[in-house]
């Protein structure tokens, strides 16, 4: 019996495809998420929009809160640690969370180094803005990626940018001749063996989901259409007017993203979405996607 092998880690990511992973801050929200059809929940103390508003240092959640959510739902429970904070990650592993998100939404603990993730039994998901960042994280052991978008803004524009960038860089790699790949690996700042793998296969070696700014069923469907294999929704559900309705609608839209007639029904009468932020109103320091490298 080989426990927690890399295929076992990636396997859980495969099982989340076509699903919605919802940020929840308490047991009640976790239950609402499960009843709406979420394929997993992300347990955290404050959703990204709240973290933005409050300011200060955002850290990993209280284990008591994570345990309460694990006891309340049967779907996988994920939790976030700060970039580079391998002790927070060890604590989350000891709690047996199902996935750790080494997340730019929390305040980074290390500005130079991400966590060496191969050494953990629990799988990691990490954010990326482009192919180089994606492959660096996989090189460190991430079993799943998510495009970063700009969390807590209710604005999909950065998520779209990151998905499109990733897709076009992958497509470009498949067009290069073998002798060009080392230079491309240098330019991307990515491990050569992974660059070769992507060039040969035309996709990432682990699933890639979308995150950051998804606030409507149409946003979720847009991400799927741009190549995301599932979506994370943070502030978009529980900061909207009718979170139960919206949670269900986003689940439905992620499954039926290709069916515009169904999307029209799904999008009907959801009440007000979360208040959004235009990117021009954010200062450089406000941009969470810039955290990590």
């Amino acid at each position: 019996m080989d426990v927690s092998t890399f295929p076992a880690k990636v396997g859980l990511a495969e099982m989340l495809k076509g699903g919605v992973i919802m940020d929840v801050v308490n047991v009640e929200q976790a239950r609402i998420a499960q009843e709406a059809g979420a394929c997993a929940v992300m347990a955290l103390e404050r959703v990204p929009a709240q973290i933005r508003k409050d300011g200060g240092v955002a850290r990993a959640s209280d284990p008591a809160m994570i345990k309460a959510i694990q006891a309340a739902v049967s779907i996988p429970v994920m939790a976030k640690c700060r970039i580079g904070h391998f002790v927070e990650a060890r604590i989350l592993e000891a709690l047996e969370v199902d996935f750790i998100d080494e997340s730019e939404v929390l305040t980074p603990a290390d500005e130079d180094f991400h966590i060496e993730k191969h050494g953990f039994k629990v799988p990691f998901v990490c954010g990326c803005r482009d192919l180089g960042e994606a492959l660096r994280r996989i090189g460190e052991g991430a079993a799943m990626l998510r495009t970063k978008g700009e969390a807590g803004t209710g604005n999909i524009v950065e998520g779209v940018r990151h998905l499109r960038t990733l897709r076009s860089q992958i497509r470009r790699l498949t067009q290069l001749s073998p002798e060009e790949l080392m230079t491309e690996a240098k330019n991307l700042g990515a491990p050569y063996d992974l660059v070769k793998w992507v060039a040969a296969n035309g996709k990432l070696p682990v699933p890639n989901f979308a995150a950051g700014g998804i606030a409507t069923p149409a946003d979720a469907a847009l991400c799927m259409a741009l190549g995301a294999e599932a979506v994370f929704v943070g502030s978009g559900i529980f900061l909207s007017e009718d979170s139960r309705k919206r949670a269900k609608a986003i689940v439905d839209a992620t499954t039926y993203w290709q069916d515009a007639k169904k999307l029209a029904e799904i999008s009907t009468g959801l009440g007000a979405g979360m208040p959004g932020i235009e990117m021009g109103k954010l200062t450089e320091a406000d941009r969470m996607a810039k955290r990590g490298w």
């Binding site: 996988p76 047996e96 199902d98 996935f99």
Partner: peptide, 14 residues
């Protein structure tokens, strides 16, 4: 019985 082998850290190959 659901999830009877435990959470993700107990997932395995054989």
């Amino acid at each position: 019985a659901r999830n009877a082998w435990g959470r993700q850290v107990h997932s395995f190959e054989d």
